[in-house]
Design a protein around this nucleic acid. Structure first.
Length: 322
DNA sequence: GCCCGACGACTTAAATACAC
DNA sequence: GTGTATTTAAGTCGTCGGGC
């Protein structure tokens, strides 16, 4: 059993009602008394009991997040930003790495105020929840709202950028599994971008069969053993890490021998061996939008589906072909 | 199956203590 | 007597276990 306001009341020599008021910054408690109570609470390591608060306020100020993988850097960055945004609103975040249905059931039992589902894979199970759910990425059941990045437009932007630089032999490396609709969107963006530029005949999409750095490494080796594109578009940050490694091992340089544009608009792109041109929605914007949506859902409001606009952030990895 | 009490945090109204 | 600070008591919330 942890420290309760009754323990603090006893230690501070006041009633628990006064402790409650002091902890909630009530003007009905004298400044000196309030400071003393806060000091005692701090010394005793007091942490409010979320379950008890929920009984009174009917809100836990906690958001559950169904976490698909701990391996993807872009998602880890996004989760950290969401956590920071929720903290600013005095909310807490709980992560579950259980399968979606198990995690949602668990969060229902914990009575969190809302649940964010990272839809990285197709949702075959029908999830039912009395708590508001928000899906990011892969859409969930039609009854729940979805927020996503315009992935198709992002990759199209990348193709346009490379075409404007003078590239025509532009290849794409990404997960081409038709069951993953958000990955399919990126591949469609590539196809449309190539069509728009009149380069359909140069279309070269390589299935990385996953989004890990290893997948990117294997895919780029496979591609460059047969073809010699002047530019590459990668479908994710992790793939990009593997692609850079593969290109380096083949004694090619970025961007002199091959230009590179990557999906995932995250600050980590700046820190790679070669700072990489990125397309997508800035991760901070995604985090802010997701947080706003979650808090609206938690307060009982309805939110429409949202598709976030994208941008291109040019760095050293892309330039005109030599 | 129904009722009741307990759990912890919180609110509120009423009562009390104390200084001026 | 008045005003301020604090205490007391009661009630609320959802869930669970125990007693009848």
């Amino acid at each position: 059993m942890g420290i309760t306001i009754k323990d603090i009341a006893k230690a501070a020599g006041v009633s628990y009602s006064t402790v409650s008021k002091a902890l909630n910054d009530s003007p009905l408690v004298k400044k000196e008394t309030k400071q003393k109570i806060l000091r005692v609470a701090d010394e005793m390591g007091y942490q409010p009991n979320i379950a008890a608060k929920k009984l009174v306020s009917n809100e836990s100020r906690t958001i559950g997040v169904v976490w698909p993988t701990v391996e993807r850097v872009a998602l880890t960055t996004l989760a950290a930003k969401i956590n920071a945004a929720l903290e600013q609103q005095k909310y807490h975040m709980l992560l579950s790495i259980n399968p979606t249905k198990t995690a949602v059931d668990l969060f229902n039992r914990f009575q969190v105020d809302g649940v964010l589902v990272f839809g990285e894979e197709a949702h075959e199970e029908i999830i039912s929840s009395s708590i508001p759910l928000l899906y990011y990425g892969e859409p969930g059941p039609a009854t729940y709202p979805t927020i996503d990045v315009n992935r198709r437009k992002a990759i199209q932007l990348g193709v346009r950028h490379l075409v404007q630089l003078g590239h025509s032999r532009i290849a794409y490396i990404g997960d081409l599994n038709p069951q993953h609709s958000n990955q399919r969107e990126k591949a469609t963006g590539y196809t449309l971008g190539m069509e728009e530029a009149g380069y359909s005949h140069l279309h070269e999409a390589v299935d990385s069969r996953g989004l890990s750095w290893q997948a990117g490494y294997q895919a780029v080796k496979q591609l460059l053993s047969k073809k010699k594109p002047t530019a590459l578009i990668s479908a994710s940050y992790d793939l990009t890490v593997g692609i850079i490694r593969g290109i380096k091992e083949l004694h090619l340089t970025i961007p002199q021998d091959i230009s590179l544009v990557s999906y995932d608009h995250i600050p980590e792109m700046e820190k790679l061996d070669v700072p990489v041109t990125a397309v997508g929605t800035p991760v901070q914007t995604i985090a802010t939008e997701i947080t706003n949506h979650l808090l609206q859902l938690a307060s009982g409001k309805k939110v429409p589906p949202a598709i976030l606009d994208v941008e291109l952030f040019q760095r050293q990895s892309s330039r005109s072909p030599e």
